[in-house]
Nucleic acid binder design. Structure first.
Lengths: 199, 199
DNA sequence: GTTTTTATTGAACACATTGTCTGTTATTGA
DNA sequence: TCAATAACAGACAATGTGTTCAATAAAAAC
């Protein structure tokens, strides 16, 4: 899956310059406010060069999102797999901490909406699969809503944790996340089961 | 607080045309993709007229957000006040249903980020105040994270409920929301109290 | 080390969008 | 009816986007 040929040094250099500049600028001004012109000025790279590598800013930011999917789906066959609703919270928060600046630029308050939606989608899918597979009642649409809500909570927690510059250790943060996710599910059977709640 | 003078009919007409056009366009193409030109074309209104009323699209969309703040903060002194973490969930979901199209344009998947952030901020503030005031431990930064997470969950639930075109009745949706919010808090003391968890 | 390949450059280009400003016209409220 | 004012069309500068091209520089291949 990894690239067969080692890339031309110039390519590596240019792409790194561009991504680093984008991250800096996003953290300074917010993703929306960053113009391609700003990026290439800071990176000291020609305009045509930028477009030789990326179609637009979005693609540039996306080019650095490997750690994200790896966090969620990497090492799925490990024995130590400690999954909560199909997600390895420990690894997710650990990787986010390892890539703090990049992660904050992608997911922080000033981050790009598209990557946040992307993460939300991945998380939602995982949670929903787990939830729908679960026994009990069959109200799939309600379960979808619940999955959306819980996915929002997890992404929201991750984002504000990054935005606040990691006030908790990755370990504590993931423990907190686990408690929130599982707790929110605890009272659901009472509500979702139609016959038992005659309101 | 309401306007003292009745507005010129032309003003009312123009503003309504513009807002209705914006809502339609947002539901069709998504907020980002809508240009001022699109709005005034559909509303059949002159360009200069648009800017006589609003500074930009954002302000136009914001001009219709009265129901939102009213949902959260209206009738605070009612005896029937049934608050969950400082929020009247019943009224919130009911008002959102009453203003379905507008609410979906504002908060749906294609909605404008700014209003979503605005709602999140209001919800977060309310939850955080309630949570910080609560006894037990004093880890304010952890509580802030929890408030952010729970606010994200509530906003996320509301958004996906709107996006899915109200698969549950407002009553059922608010009941579900209450269960999710309170449930997520249930297990927290175990995690947040430092001495009892020697990990 | 020379040659070949390829990335980078800068400048110009068409295009879209924004927000402002003008004098003129049409509608409104009194 | 008439004075006030909202709406109008259209042009405008400013900004940003994405493309193209020949010339240059740097890397890779030999």
């Amino acid at each position: 899956m990894t690239s067969s040929k080692p890339l031309d040094r110039r390519i590596q250099r240019t792409r790194k310059l561009l991504l680093d500049s984008l991250i800096e600028l996003v953290l300074e001004k917010g993703y929306e406010a960053v113009a391609v012109q700003d990026i290439i000025d800071r990176a000291n790279v020609g305009r045509s060069t930028f477009y030789a590598h990326f179609e637009n800013k979005e693609q540039l930011l996306f080019s650095g999102h490997g750690w994200l999917t790896e966090s969620l789906f990497g090492n799925r066959n490990e024995p130590s797999a400690d999954l909560t609703l199909g997600i390895n919270l420990g690894i997710l928060f650990q990787h986010a901490a390892d890539n703090h600046r990049l992660a904050k630029a992608m997911l922080g308050k000033k981050g790009g909406e598209l990557i946040i939606n992307h993460l939300h989608e991945l998380v939602y899918t995982s949670i929903n699969q787990t939830l729908q597979a679960n026994q009990s009642n069959q109200d799939t649409s309600a379960k979808r809503l619940v999955s959306q809500a819980i996915a929002s909570m997890l992404v929201g927690l991750l984002r504000s944790w990054l935005e606040a510059d990691l006030p908790l250790s990755p370990g504590k943060a993931s423990t907190l996340a686990r408690a929130l996710l599982l707790g929110s599910l605890a009272e659901l059977p009472t509500v979702l089961a139609p016959p038992s709640v005659p309101y």
